[in-house]
Design a binder for these strands. Structure first.
Lengths: 219, 219, 219, 219
DNA sequence: TATGAATGAGGGTTCATTCAT
DNA sequence: TATGAATGAACCCTCATTCAT
């Protein structure tokens, strides 16, 4: 139903023009691919070229590089959230965790990391919202495994996400994907280290997502 | 020895430019520090400025950026080799491994990774020699632990070094060292995953250092 | 007259797009204000924004910047002509001249000057017509004063208009109107110099408006 | 004598390299010419091209446009000061004033005006020093004429300099120098208006150079 | 017709690299 | 040899203008 009483009437926005939306989408897609492959420092004009639009269109949609990064981060987070949600369908709690970690790697979650570079507003409402969603989804997996006595409890979501990001970061230079084979091995080993019973004591204390935001740029 | 014992008069070696050597050393030191902090993309002139010499002196010593990276990599590898050798003094084989891994992290071995960027001759004799030395030192630790039944055998030196590098890579953007706390936690977890008995099966096969060289840039 | 008196029913004129006219008017007003404030180099799109219309509407009405400048010049000339005509009501011939000069300054006649920039068709019929009207109006003031033996006769209308324009030109940079106080002082001094008896001999010869047109861009 | 006791020993500056100085000089000259002709908004690279050096050399010497403008202003002020000092040799006090005004016009003093645009540090010590020198030189001319009863006393140095600048400002658009003929006529008329006995009362009060600095950008 | 978007050329700036002292 | 300057290519970004709805 398009206008059930009680729901906000579908406001007819000034019609955002079909092709403009398509261009914007193309830009984000091109940027995500290139960020993953070459890092977020790719020449701005190249992103436009890859998307098949003029450079000024890129600037119109994303006046600052930070705006583009912002959008790509959101887009990528959305994909990873989906991965987490699908992983939750798994019965075995630790298997669910494994499925998430390997799935997130396939979505190039490591590309999120270079996006933290430079002037990037980590406190933007959109980002906080999406981070919360991601947090909830993954936290669900973690807690389930921890409550089931399968995952060590001295590890936080922040630990998991940072290690996951680091281990899946694109190897610099050539966008050679040939490292995928390594990545999944390392993730597997790391997951093994997460399983109970714990084999060592960890220094410091479990890192939350909140810790991440605070620590990343403490001046 | 070229100077026979007994030839009292200290032969005046042509003394290969005392300050030239000092300049070169300064440059490498400055570069290593800056690479670790800002990545190997730091403006070339800045390296010279930090070293306190003219830019052309940098070019004289390292005509291409690759040359400078080469030298820094060698220098850093030397430090890590030392770490490995000291770790070997440990009696407990797995404790030795742990000591190496955490020690290498403290030496910023992760900084080696960005140095793989761009045009970097991984087959240079010096590099091969040093890599071999590093390989031997670490291989020693690994094999000892594996033979002692402490470390899983489906993991190769390549795996260890790549994971180690990735997990210790500087977080992009601000050269904030505040992540050190995280790093050692993650390494610890990873080490736990390396310990026997293995808790999962790994995809692919153990990566050697040789694999690394070949895979890193296969076009 | 086309509408005979007595034909009661108000004939419905095809009404040449009521809001189109309003848009055009808005654009000219916005442009005049911005030209005076920021010079005629103001970004084209900004003029449209200030007028509250889309940029393409600006282009539809004034395909080239010269067209817009043209219109603004005409509009401003119209205002200045009015000033001249009202000044003519003054009895004292030199007082009339003074009133015109100061009044024209208040209308920002100096803003006409930057409009001579670039490709600007000074020979457009409309412009010639308006210039002639202006010429007549001011020439009337000048001749009256000269015939009355109040104003030196080695000075032409071209001299007066150029000096007037220059002395009232907006000071570059900030559109700070704080110079108005200076402007009227300088105009007053200049007017004193115009009064008889002449105190010096002028080089060259009296410039007419026609001279202006010819001289302004002789390459 | 190169090192007479009591005089500061000629410190051997690191030898500013002969051709570097020549390049810098060329850049300032090119800029002055182009500023006078086209305004201070000329493309930066064009200045370099006209000077016959690479663009980056321009940036090396004058990292910001304001730096270049600063230098040109100083250079031009120096020339105008010379004009004032030579004019002071004139016996007749008002003739000296006339000679200065026309001479300054020939030096394109009007070009100083566009240089006040944008972000330009009017309070730089160098500039204050030079403005003081210019002030003294011209003030000398003015006071002499006023004390001799030749020039009206309700006019200040600020008035003179602003009017002089405005009347000699390059006409915008084409760098057509054909207006020189007009300029000297207008200056002559203005000078006539400055002569005693005063023919009218001026609004406001005499403007000093100090007023200029304060008024020009009062926010 | 009015609108907002797309375009591409050009100006501003940095930086790796070469040159001259 | 060590130095600082010069160079030009590449990037970032803006803006006048055209296009599609």
């Amino acid at each position: 139903m398009t206008s059930t009483p009680g729901t906000a009437p579908a406001r007819r926005v000034p019609r955002p023009r079909a092709d403009a939306l398509r261009n914007r989408e193309r830009l984000v897609t091109a940027a995500r691919e290139m960020f993953v492959e070459f890092g977020s420092q790719v020449p701005y004009d190249e992103v436009a070229r890859r998307a098949g639009v003029g450079n000024a269109t890129l600037y119109r949609n994303f006046p600052e590089r930070a705006d583009l990064v912002h959008e790509v981060v959101l887009s990528l987070m959305g994909r990873v959230i989906e991965v987490a949600e699908r992983a939750a369908e798994e019965d075995d709690t630790f298997a669910a965790l494994r499925r998430f970690v390997h799935g997130a790697a396939d979505e190039r979650v490591g590309a999120l990391c270079p996006m933290l570079e430079g002037t990037f507003d980590k406190d933007h409402p959109d980002l906080i919202a999406e981070r919360d969603r991601l947090g909830e989804a993954v936290q669900g997996l973690v807690e389930r495994a921890q409550r089931a006595g399968r995952m060590r409890t001295d590890v936080g979501l922040g630990d998991l996400m940072v290690a996951l990001s680091q281990l899946t970061r694109p190897l610099p230079g050539t966008g050679c994907g040939s490292f995928d084979q390594f990545v999944h091995r390392h993730l597997q080993i790391f997951l093994d280290g997460l399983e109970l019973p714990a084999r060592s004591e960890l220094p410091g204390k479990a890192a939350t997502l909140e810790d991440l935001r605070r620590e990343s740029c403490s001046p």
